[in-house]
Simulated scan of single mutants.
Amino acid sequence: MSVLSYFSGIENVWLNKLVTKLTSSNTRSAKSGSVYIIGAGPGDAELITVKAQRLINTADVVLYDWLVSDDLLKTLPKKAQRVFVGKRAGKHSMTQANICELLVKYAQQGLNVVRLKGGDPSIFARINEEADALTKHNINFAIVPGVTTACATSAYTGIPLTARDVARSVTFLTAQFADPNKQPHWQNYAFMPASNNPTLVVYMGLSRLKMLSNGLQSVGWPSNTPIALIENATTTKQKVITSTLELIVNEHAKHDLQGPTLIMIGEVINHKMAISPELLNSVNINA
């Protein structure tokens, strides 16, 4: 072997190592991070799932909305950047398009991104729009379910969602639409006389309570149908107001409801269970 070929061999090995190192570095920097769309539950921080908490602890950045409780925010890792995207019915500090752009931007920086949504992300949370934006940019994402507000509210108030011979089904609906002048197709929720009617659970409906009351009565729901407004469900500030479809607007006017409020409608309200909610906030010394 000549001296020239010997040194040429060493140079080739060195160049190959350098190219491999640079390529690996560039690949890492160009690689997108991952996004986890996580349901934060309805308010009580202890209702977060084990999987959700594990993934939250790995976050580099957390985008959260108005419905995520302060107690849960206190558990976020200190290293994680917090970004408030402030969504609330009728009061958006950031548009949905902006939120989608932020998710993509942070993920493209190679960060571990958590999108924290109140309740369950698959129920009236515009999850499809965020998923579409991530898919369009080839960003890997996963969805972690949360305890939806309807189920949690039922548990924390004692109002069942279904009950034998009272309500065999439950219907979730929203009173908010992209067009503020739009109303639900009331005929889809028509009352069935001498039949088993579903329990109606209305998300984001407090600001359109009068419309809701009039609309349901227009398709046959009796004026004395029970209705409950539940503010700040599952938290220490939970407040429950019960009335009838006919009287609920006037009853609501007597109370200053500022927190997120779920609406439940149906005969199940008259079958409220005598729960002891204080058991959920104390240690069972006999355990």
Rank of each mutant, 00 (worst) to 15 (best):
residue 200 L to M: 02
residue 32 S to I: 01
residue 59 A to D: 07
residue 248 I to S: 10
residue 238 Q to W: 09
residue 66 W to L: 08
residue 87 K to V: 03
residue 221 W to N: 01
residue 84 F to G: 13
residue 97 A to S: 13
residue 36 Y to T: 15
residue 168 R to L: 02
residue 87 K to L: 07
residue 223 S to Q: 12
residue 103 L to Q: 07
residue 90 G to H: 07
residue 89 A to L: 00
residue 171 T to G: 02
residue 26 N to C: 12
residue 102 L to G: 04
residue 11 E to Y: 13
residue 31 K to Y: 12
residue 61 V to P: 07
residue 148 T to L: 11
residue 155 A to C: 13
residue 276 S to K: 15
residue 110 G to D: 12
residue 27 T to I: 11
residue 47 L to D: 06
residue 252 H to P: 11
residue 163 A to M: 04
residue 200 L to A: 00
residue 166 V to K: 06
residue 122 S to K: 13
residue 121 P to S: 12
residue 198 P to I: 04
residue 154 S to E: 01
residue 223 S to R: 07
residue 26 N to P: 00
residue 222 P to D: 05
residue 106 Y to N: 07
residue 112 N to C: 15
residue 231 E to D: 10
residue 143 I to G: 10
residue 171 T to Y: 09
residue 153 T to I: 04
residue 113 V to E: 08
residue 30 A to E: 12
residue 127 I to D: 09
residue 41 G to Y: 02
residue 158 G to T: 10
residue 127 I to A: 15
residue 149 T to M: 04
residue 43 G to T: 09
residue 46 E to W: 02
residue 173 L to I: 09
residue 140 N to E: 15
residue 283 V to E: 14
residue 205 G to H: 02
residue 139 I to R: 05
residue 206 L to I: 01
residue 174 T to G: 07
residue 259 G to V: 06
residue 108 Q to K: 15
residue 38 I to H: 05
residue 101 E to G: 10
residue 148 T to V: 15
residue 175 A to W: 02
residue 240 V to I: 15
residue 8 S to M: 06
residue 39 G to R: 08
residue 45 A to L: 02
residue 79 K to L: 09
residue 253 A to S: 14
residue 129 E to I: 11
residue 32 S to K: 13
residue 86 G to P: 01
residue 37 I to E: 11
residue 30 A to H: 11
residue 19 V to Q: 11
residue 34 S to E: 14
residue 110 G to E: 01
residue 268 V to W: 00
residue 101 E to M: 04
residue 197 N to E: 01
residue 248 I to W: 07
residue 150 A to S: 13
residue 208 R to K: 14
residue 63 L to V: 05
residue 198 P to E: 04
residue 212 L to V: 04
